[in-house]
Design a protein around this nucleic acid. Structure first.
Lengths: 216, 216
DNA sequence: TAATGTGAATCGTTTCACAGCG
DNA sequence: CGCTGTGAAACGATTCACATTA
């Protein structure tokens, strides 16, 4: 129930965002062209998948030639909506939230942290950062007034649902949920769940049920 | 290439670990039985998927009756290998690594943090924790001698591959990779990639290509 | 009536095969 | 000869339909 109808398959989206990032790096290191096989090799996908994905978003490379890195990256940025910077915020400024607030990779990423929220005024006063910090009751207000599109949710599990609802009310578009609590929100809000303990459980099961393939 | 041949579908594994955790909570709150529909409702799955998954691991509930919470949880723990506690370690003790080291949910989770590693001796001396901390060059040695099965990798991207190789050499079974760098390791090591920036990209794309379904 | 068990059908994704171009 | 483009086949997962039982 209440899933979305993606015009683009989810596996494709996940591969493409990784490809997009890799293209940024290749461009920075001066590579002008790259093959689908090379992209796949570096990221762990098959060359077939890479080509299918690119065709799915309507990119046409020249038949026989390799992909032009710059043109492909620009096309993907445009088509996937990654061309412009998006505002995002961190809710919950415990250890994990603070870590996200200071996350070094974010600077060069096309995402701008514009706010942090916590229910403890003490924390708001203690944390040293350039990001503007607000008490939790202002979530809805600030998200709306600042036009914040994305959020990382790093509060205690018991506070997750209500914080998420405040974000949704402010018009948030997507939430990365780092809590173990499943969120119930209108379908207009995209949710990605990242739960360390559950990942450890998944790994545990995988190590037993994947009497796996080839070395390297 | 180099993927595994799961005797259990990956989507099934992910649902089952969540179901397992929910069963623990239901048991704690005194519920004695639960239906597939209720489980699905709480976690966002269809009742069909829940029943199929349970049948896949060979669980047989009584036809017509609901599932007995306690018996089901015990069966899953046994079958999925979640019955005994597993040792795990944190590699890289920057803000994110420290956050994981102190992660509150881990205490009640069936996973035991038994080691932290960092290349900076200064950090090893500064961090206050009960967990034993070691310099990075001891990764292989300690993982092997302690029998550590799982690791969270939270080093800078440039150090990810070499740290991962040390873990692999020590016999690690699975790694949660929080760096943006893709890891190349023998197929005997399971890897889950969690990259905040990429999740934000995925969310961005999803908000545009999922002109989504129903409210709530 | 409300629930599970299960084979069949449907849907989505990946892989294959090969045509066409540099 | 290596690479892309693309329709077809193969594979995997979800949903459906319905028999069955408390």
């Amino acid at each position: 129930m209440s899933e979305c109808k993606p015009q683009l398959p989810k596996p494709t989206i996940e591969r493409m965002t990784r490809i997009f990032h890799l293209l940024e790096e290749l461009e920075r290191s001066g590579d002008e062209t790259v093959s689908s096989g090379r992209l796949g090799e570096l990221l762990g996908f098959s060359s077939h998948s890479v080509r299918k994905d690119l065709n799915l978003i309507g990119f046409s490379g020249t038949n026989g030639a390799r992909y032009p890195v710059r043109r492909l990256r620009e096309f993907m940025a445009e088509t996937l909506g990654l061309a412009r910077s998006r505002k995002f915020c961190v809710v919950g400024l415990g250890r994990l939230g603070s870590a996200i607030l200071h996350y070094p990779f974010l600077k060069e990423s096309g995402f701008a942290i514009v706010a942090g929220f916590d229910s403890s005024v003490n924390r708001l006063e203690t944390i040293r950062t350039d990001v503007k910090l607000y008490p939790a009751y202002q979530i809805t207000e600030i998200v709306r007034s600042e036009g914040i599109e994305l959020a990382a949710l790093a509060v205690p599990g018991s506070a997750a649902q209500s914080a998420a609802e405040r974000l949704a009310e402010g018009g948030i578009r997507g939430i990365v949920n780092f809590t173990p609590a499943p969120l119930k929100l209108p379908g207009s809000v995209q949710i990605l769940n990242i739960d360390l303990v559950n990942e450890l459980r998944v790994l545990t099961v995988l190590t037993q049920f994947c009497d796996s393939g080839e070395g390297v």
